[in-house]
């Protein structure tokens, strides 16, 4: 299977590549649009600050290309947040594929949320063989509220979206590559979509 990881200099993807290798897939880390377009599956990673990540996408034209992808796309962490219209982080726009505004966690909880939290209300075949209240590893300061496109939730200062889906675009807030067997299962499910 041909899996492309979009390379736009926003974070390190070594662990993601290793996780895919454990599933027998040699993912290609690339910013070459032709390679991304013809891949069977595309992963859109992201770490660090939203505004600078968005600038990198705009500078390379990827912000225009990504929304045109037809195959299953999986945004991870900041990659999921950037599928949305806008984010409070640096008041940056996103790719606008999902109509939602990304908000900051209130100071009633520690920010960033760091660690393992349960996920529930699982509503997609992306979560096949993953039990309700499975644990996933999360590190983030901003979150997407529960919306129509929510396919999984978690609870940190209230319920919020840990996974979204709009057509062929999927996003997960947690890091499947760091989430032990449940995370591995999720990646395997994505590869099967």
């Amino acid at each position: 299977m041909d899996v492309a990881i979009i390379d736009y200099g926003a974070g390190n993807v070594k662990s993601l590549q290793f996780a895919l290798e454990r599933l027998g897939v040699q993912a290609r880390l690339t910013h070459d649009w032709e390679l991304i377009q013809k891949a069977d599956k595309v992963i859109f990673p992201g770490q660090g600050a939203a505004a600078s990540a968005m600038k990198k996408l705009t500078a390379t034209g990827l912000d225009q290309w990504i929304p045109q992808l037809q195959q299953p796309v999986l945004g991870i962490c900041l990659g999921m947040q950037l599928l949305c219209s806008s984010t409070a982080e640096g008041n940056s726009p996103g790719l606008g594929l999902i109509k939602a505004h990304v908000e900051r966690f209130p100071n009633t909880v520690k920010v960033p949320q760091m660690g393992w939290n349960t996920i529930f209300s699982l509503q997609s075949n992306l979560f096949e063989k993953i039990e309700e209240d499975a644990y996933m590893y999360l590190v983030h300061s901003y979150f997407v509220p529960v919306i129509e496109e929510t396919i999984a939730q978690s609870d940190y200062a209230g319920n919020y979206s840990v996974a979204l889906q709009k057509d062929n675009f999927y996003g997960v807030q947690f890091h499947p590559e760091k989430s032990s067997t449940a995370g591995q299962q999720l990646l395997e499910n994505f590869l099967k979509l």
Binding site: K14, S15, F18, Y137, V139, H175, K178, S179, S180
Partner: peptide, 11 residues
């Protein structure tokens, strides 16, 4: 670090 990252799936 590279070897550890290849071997484990926790942070």
């Amino acid at each position: 670090v590279l070897k550890v990252a290849a071997a484990i799936d926790i942070p």
